[in-house]
């Protein structure tokens, strides 16, 4: 019943929207109708334009995310486990954190041009901070008693990492991961708005010049869908990795 209601309210909004467009209340140059959006999405898909744009944007997000995650994990591990590392690296990371991300766009264009690099680096920068902060906090919060157990049981270093540290930091890292992915997409959208010769941002920008609100909205929906997909992947990871918390399943 409640489940049905959850689906019903968005459907009602779409129906009203379609009605307003069909009756001419909503001007297509302000906002295209849902039916028009579906047609446009289909045509853009058939022509190959949309899949190509999605692929280009997804690649930027993936590369930026990988780069940012690598830096965050390396720095976070050093800072979280070593006092010296903390003293040396943490101030730098805190400085990075205070930089206005989008304020860097002009500088990045000067440094890296207008091709792929500035977008990838901007996404990487957006990913680094939340992932780093959550990893460091999680590493500092690892239960000392369990670390002592690892020592008492004479676990090898790799075993202690696998059985104690990794599972202990996983909940915090997954929170950081979700925040980082959210920021990565937002950052990519902004970076692609500024300038792009391909990708979803390019598609949207071009459409703006011709008042093609249907293409703009289709582009936005694609961003949303990509965000939903990555969020779903993290949630699946969470479910798999944090099963022990629910304890619902019995032996």
């Amino acid at each position: 019943m409640l489940r049905a209601l959850r689906v019903a309210s968005p459907l009602a909004v779409v129906a009203l929207w379609q009605l307003a467009s069909s009756l001419g209340v909503l001007d297509p140059s302000t906002l295209a109708s849902p039916a028009q959006l579906a047609r446009t999405a289909w045509e853009l898909t058939r022509s190959g334009e949309l899949p190509h744009a999605v692929a280009v944007s997804a690649r930027r997000a993936a590369l930026g995310f990988a780069l940012g995650a690598a830096v965050a994990i390396a720095a976070g591990t050093v800072v979280g486990l070593s006092r010296v590392g903390d003293a040396v690296l943490d101030p730098l990371m805190q400085m990075l954190r205070m930089l206005p991300l989008f304020g860097l766009v002009p500088l990045f264009i000067i440094w890296f041009g207008i091709q792929e690099e500035p977008k990838i680096y901007l996404v990487a920068l957006a990913v680094v901070v939340p992932l780093y902060l959550n990893l460091v906090a999680a590493l500092r919060g690892v239960d000392r008693d369990l670390v002592e157990v690892a020592r008492v049981l004479r676990l090898r270093r790799a075993e202690a990492v696998r059985h104690v540290y990794l599972p202990a930091v996983l909940p915090g890292v997954l929170v950081g991961l979700r925040q980082a992915l959210g920021l990565a997409w937002i950052t990519l959208i902004v970076a692609e708005q500024v300038n792009a010769g391909a990708g979803l941002g390019f598609l949207v920008n071009n459409a703006r010049d011709f008042l093609l609100t249907d293409v703009i909205v289709v582009g936005l929906l694609c961003y949303a869908a990509l965000g939903l997909v990555t969020d779903g992947v993290v949630r699946a990871l969470e479910w798999r990795a944090l099963r022990w918390r629910d304890g619902g399943e019995t032996a």
């Binding site: 008693d145 369990l146 002592e148 157990v149 690892a150 008492v152 049981l153 004479r154 676990l155 090898r156 075993e159 059985h163 104690v164 599972p167 202990a168 996983l170 022990w244 918390r245 032996a251």
Partner: peptide
Amino acid sequence: APAVVFQDPRLLPWRRVLDNVALG
């Protein structure tokens, strides 16, 4: 080969009972 039992069990909450016993 010393072994310790603490006041609290200190099991790894993310490992099943058998894996806790077999740890290491």
